[in-house]
C-alpha cells in the first residue's frame, strides 16, 4: 500500500533522513521505532508533505505522491495523528472531529452523524465533552480526540506519531487497546511511530528501527522483541574508557 524508497530529507544543511526505504502492506500495523532524533517524525512529515524530501520516492497505492501538497495527500486517504496531538484548541470537541472529514469533500449530514456516533462509541469520553473547547481537555483526552479526528477521515492509511508521548501508563495501555481494535475492526492500515518499543511491538506485525536517519533493523515484531540488539540500541553498550 505504501512504499518508500531511499528517501532523503534535509532541514537546511542537516540531513534528517539518509535514504530510508520501507514498506507497509494493506491491512497491516507497522511500527517505526527509534530514539529521539532518529528521524521518525521527519519520515512522517515527509509522507504527509509537510516537508519536501530531497531525494527518493513515496508511492501510495501505486501513485507517486512525493512532493505533493499536504492537502492533496490527505485527500488521497492518508490521515495523520501528529506528534504532540495538535488538536484545534479553540474549537470544541465535535468541531475538531468535523475537521477530520474535510479531506473527504462534501458529505451528507446523515453520514457525518453516523461517523460521529461511531467515534463516540470508541471514545465515550469525547461524547461527554463534545461541547468543551479542545484546550480544556487533559492530555489523554486530547490524544483520544486526535485519533478520533484522524478516523473521521475514514483513511486507508492512518499515521500515528508517538501516540503515547507524555501519557500516564494506564492511558498508554488504553491508547494501544484502541489502536489494535481500529485495525482489527475496520481493517485500517496503520503506520505507528513509537519510542515505547515493547508497546509498539505488541500491536504491530512488523517493525523498522531507525537510528540517525537510517533504517538499522527490520523484522517481524516477535523477532525484534526477542532480539538482544534492540536492547543495545535503546540502552547503549560498551564500557567507559579512560
Amino acid at each position: 500500500m505504501l512504499r518508500i524508497e531511499s528517501l532523503s530529507t534535509f532541514y537546511g544543511a542537516v540531513q534528517a533522513l539518509k535514504g530510508v526505504s520501507l514498506e507497509v502492506r494493506q491491512g497491516a500495523v507497522v511500527s517505526l521505532l527509534g530514539s529521539n532524533g532518529a528521524g521518525k517524525s521527519t519520515l512522517i512529515r515527509s509522507i504527509t508533505g509537510l516537508v519536501a524530501p530531497r531525494a527518493g520516492s513515496i508511492v501510495f497505492k501505486s501513485e507517486n505522491i512525493t512532493g505533493k501538497s499536504t492537502e492533496s495527500i490527505s485527500r488521497r486517504g492518508i490521515a495523520c495523528v501528529p506528534e504532540g496531538r495538535h488538536i484545534f484548541p479553540g474549537l470544541n470537541v465535535e468541531d475538531n472531529l468535523l475537521m477530520g472529514t474535510v479531506s473527504r469533500g462534501k458529505l451528507p449530514q446523515s453520514e457525518v452523524a453516523e461517523n460521529l456516533k461511531e467515534i463516540y462509541r470508541i471514545f465515550p469520553i469525547l461524547q461527554e465533552f463534545k461541547k468543551k473547547p479542545g484546550w480544556q481537555l487533559s492530555g489523554g483526552q486530547q490524544q483520544m480526540l486526535a485519533i478520533g479526528r484522524g478516523l473521521m477521515a475514514r483513511p486507508q492509511l492512518l499515521l500515528l506519531d508517538e501516540p503515547s508521548l507524555g501519557l500516564a501508563p494506564v492511558l498508554v495501555q488504553e491508547v494501544f487497546r484502541v489502536i489494535r481494535s481500529i485495525n482489527e475492526q475496520s481493517g485500517t492500515t496503520i503506520l505507528l511511530v513509537e519510542q515505547n518499543a515493547r508497546m509498539a511491538l505488541s500491536v504491530a506485525s512488523r517493525a523498522y528501527v531507525l537510528a540517525t536517519g537510517q533504517v538499522v533493523m527490520e523484522n517481524s515484531a516477535e523477532k525484534l522483541l526477542a532480539d538482544k540488539e534492540m536492547h543495545r540500541h535503546y540502552l547503549g553498550g560498551g564500557k567507559k574508557e579512560g
Partner: peptide, 8 residues
Amino acid sequence: HDMELVMT
C-alpha cells in the same frame, strides 16, 4: 540520548 556516548 546517545546511550553509547553516555555510558562511555
